[in-house]
Simulated assay, not measured.
Amino acid sequence: MSSSRKRLPPLNTIAAFEASARLMSFTSAAAELSLSQGAVSRQIQRLEERIGTALFERRHKKIELTKAGDIFYRAICESLVSIRRAVMDIERLNSTHVTISASLAMSSFWIMPAILKFKHLAPEINISILANDQVLDPFRDAVDLAILYGDGAWPDLNSYKLFDEKIFPVCSDSYATEHMIKSIDDLKRCTLIEVVSENSVCGSWEDWFNQIGYTGKFGNTQPLQVSNYDLAYRAAEAGQGITLAWNYGPQEILRSKRLIRPVDEYVDTGMAEYLVTGLSSAERPAIDRVRALLIEYSKGEGAAVF
């Protein structure tokens, strides 16, 4: 038997410790493991003797992790995440079902058109889109691909940059003409529409004006706030005001001139959208195929407008 194997505590003692630490109760751990409370206590004691230090502080009617116990518990949690990830990868090894997680806006304005575009190119692949502003993590969650907003610094993920984020005002052509919008100063006469969102570092008009360095004065009228980008763009299309758009979002709306850029200024936020997979994900032809198609789409019909 190898020395590394000899140093590994018995697995039943690890199971007893994990349940006790998670539930903070020997009694609850015993019920979960279908053991007596005494049996769990003996396994914890055996584990502590094996490691050579106390893992719990026993107090009246409650237990707490010691520093050593906290270190050991965090290591076990990380190991369980890897094990669960491996089990999911194995179960889906030959699956042609691919799940993609993305924000509501990215799902609506970019992923859906992409999937519809190349559905005929890979009819054997069943693609599910999980649209939620709490985007799932392919390393930890049951999802194959995700589009994450950020700086790309995710150590557990393989990432491919799709778009750098640039944000600019948009409105209908008739609205720009009616309000004679030629410069940023002209926006003070406009109804400003903004989305209440935390999905961008430049999501509000106040953020946008600050980041382009605008020092002019505006009235006391507050922007018209809506809950999502679809409502904002619909309102702008209907001539109700001017809103902010990002360069990889409503491409079709911009290319069809239903919305235009009335001024040239834009903010380059330094952030980007990344297509990511888990670093330890098992290779699956279906995932590789969808990933390649999304990257190809991002360079062609789905490319940023500038």
Results as ranks from 00 to 15, higher is better:
40 V>Q: 03
146 A>Y: 06
23 L>P: 03
229 Y>V: 02
198 E>A: 15
34 S>I: 10
254 L>D: 00
71 I>V: 15
51 I>H: 07
27 T>K: 14
289 R>V: 10
102 A>F: 01
241 G>F: 07
138 P>H: 04
301 E>T: 15
101 S>F: 04
28 S>Q: 15
103 S>T: 14
262 P>C: 10
218 F>M: 09
182 K>Y: 11
167 I>G: 04
190 C>Q: 05
225 Q>A: 12
12 N>R: 14
83 I>T: 12
56 F>Q: 01
40 V>E: 01
210 N>S: 15
218 F>W: 06
239 G>E: 08
265 E>N: 14
98 V>Q: 04
60 H>Y: 09
94 N>L: 13
48 E>P: 08
114 A>Y: 05
61 K>Y: 13
116 L>D: 10
174 S>V: 07
41 S>F: 12
222 Q>V: 12
69 G>I: 04
208 W>G: 05
271 M>V: 02
40 V>S: 04
148 L>N: 04
301 E>K: 09
37 Q>W: 02
234 R>Q: 14
38 G>E: 12
69 G>P: 06
255 R>E: 13
207 D>F: 07
297 Y>I: 05
172 S>M: 02
121 L>T: 13
265 E>A: 15
163 F>C: 03
29 A>V: 06
170 V>L: 06
81 V>N: 14
258 R>C: 02
164 D>M: 02
222 Q>E: 15
217 K>P: 00
121 L>P: 03
62 K>Y: 09
221 T>E: 13
95 S>C: 04
261 R>W: 04
122 A>Q: 00
244 L>E: 03
208 W>N: 01
165 E>L: 11
184 I>C: 02
133 D>T: 06
274 Y>G: 08
285 P>L: 12
242 I>H: 08
69 G>A: 07
187 L>Y: 01
8 L>S: 12
233 Y>G: 00
74 R>N: 15
169 P>Q: 02
56 F>D: 01
30 A>H: 08
301 E>C: 10
305 V>N: 03
106 M>N: 11
211 Q>A: 10
67 K>L: 14
292 A>Y: 00
243 T>N: 06
124 E>M: 07
293 L>M: 15
104 L>R: 13
127 I>D: 03
121 L>G: 06
19 A>G: 05
142 A>T: 10
9 P>H: 06
93 L>W: 09
304 A>D: 11
191 T>W: 02
63 I>Y: 00
179 H>V: 01
15 A>I: 10
97 H>F: 01
76 I>D: 08
51 I>N: 06
306 F>C: 05
78 E>N: 15
300 G>C: 08
98 V>G: 01
276 V>I: 07
211 Q>H: 13
274 Y>N: 04
191 T>M: 10
157 L>M: 11
160 Y>N: 15
120 H>C: 04
191 T>Q: 12
236 A>T: 03
233 Y>V: 02
178 E>R: 09
82 S>R: 05
40 V>L: 05
111 I>P: 00
208 W>Q: 02
122 A>Y: 00
91 E>D: 13
176 A>P: 02
233 Y>P: 00
168 F>H: 03
